[in-house]
């Protein structure tokens, strides 16, 4: 049954993506994310004093040497708030948004199947995570290429790499950031099954992202830190060390998988037992 319905499920996934990416809102958020490195690049390029060394966002002073760092700074700046914000909007909207429009009852009566719909919705929000991270990379790369030289890049360890490798590292960072957001997406999916008011689910998801980071900053709670989904978010910079510190990538992936499993299971429990009254 599941196997024979695989092509149909794939088509539903494509349809889900087309609904997501035919929304004005989705493109507005992606454009806003892409604008962050653009603004950073413009500020660095046209500020009279030049970038201050060791001040402001990390890697800011690197931009003048290698424009690709506009994307790096963009990713680092967007990680704590802007990216969770947009992912919270998309993930919180998954089920609650359909319920709010009333289309949820028609999808289920089609019948899309509750589990299938849940999986497709989650995968689509994961694709948005990729798109969101890539939006920052694209914005940063274009800004960097136009405003700055694409020369040698200095890593955190003081080693120097070629522009090509630097771009590879930037893409790796985008991958890391995407993985970082997958757990939050699962939380958003669960929140979305709890309500018919999408704004509520979005707000709950975003608030959780902020709370997690605040808890992560409290030294008194260091026993809790390894369990917080935001714990490895800023370790994205480990990809800029030489040799690359893959440890945080692995730990982060494992942590996010745990969150996906837990909140995916909770979303499954909630959504398959839910009375659809909207």
């Amino acid at each position: 049954m599941l196997l024979s319905s695989a092509p149909a499920s794939a088509r539903l996934f494509v349809s889900e993506l087309s609904v997501l990416f035919r929304r004005w809102r989705t493109w507005t958020m992606l454009a806003a994310l892409a604008a962050v490195p653009v603004l950073i690049g413009l500020a660095v390029r046209f500020s009279p004093k030049g970038p201050p060394s060791g001040r402001g966002p990390a890697f800011l002073d690197q931009i003048t040497h290698n424009g690709l760092f506009a994307g790096v700074v963009g990713l680092v700046v967007c990680t704590p708030l802007f990216l969770p914000l947009t992912v919270g909007v998309v993930a919180g909207d998954t089920i609650a948004g359909e319920a709010n429009l009333g289309t949820l009852r028609y999808l289920l009566a089609a019948p899309a199947g509750r589990v299938r719909l849940l999986v497709v919705k989650y995968l689509a929000s994961a694709v948005f995570c990729v798109a969101a991270a890539l939006a920052v990379v694209v914005g940063g790369t274009l800004t960097g290429a136009v405003l700055f030289p694409l020369g040698q890049a200095t890593l955190l360890s003081g080693d120097t790499i070629s522009p090509g490798e630097a771009f590879g590292r930037l893409l790796l960072m985008a991958g890391y950031v995407t993985v970082s957001l997958l757990g939050l997406s699962a939380i958003g999916l669960f929140a979305s099954t709890m309500t018919n008011v999408p704004v509520g689910a979005m707000a709950a998801t975003i608030v959780l992202a902020v709370v997690s980071q605040v808890l992560d900053a409290l030294d008194q709670l260091d026993w809790l830190h390894p369990w917080l989904f935001s714990d490895h978010w800023l370790s994205v910079a480990d990809l800029l060390r030489e040799p690359i510190a893959w440890g945080s990538f692995g730990e982060n992936t494992l942590l996010q998988l745990g969150y996906i499993a837990l909140f995916g299971a909770l979303a499954y429990g909630r959504f398959t037992t839910k009375d659809v009254l909207a």
Binding site: G258, A261, L262, A265, L266, Y268, G269, T272, T273
Partner: peptide, 16 residues
């Protein structure tokens, strides 16, 4: 047996 739908959610923390 609606409660069985919640079994995965209970099993995941145990597995972790």
């Amino acid at each position: 047996r609606i409660w069985t739908r919640w079994l995965p959610a209970a099993a995941v923390p145990a597995v972790i």
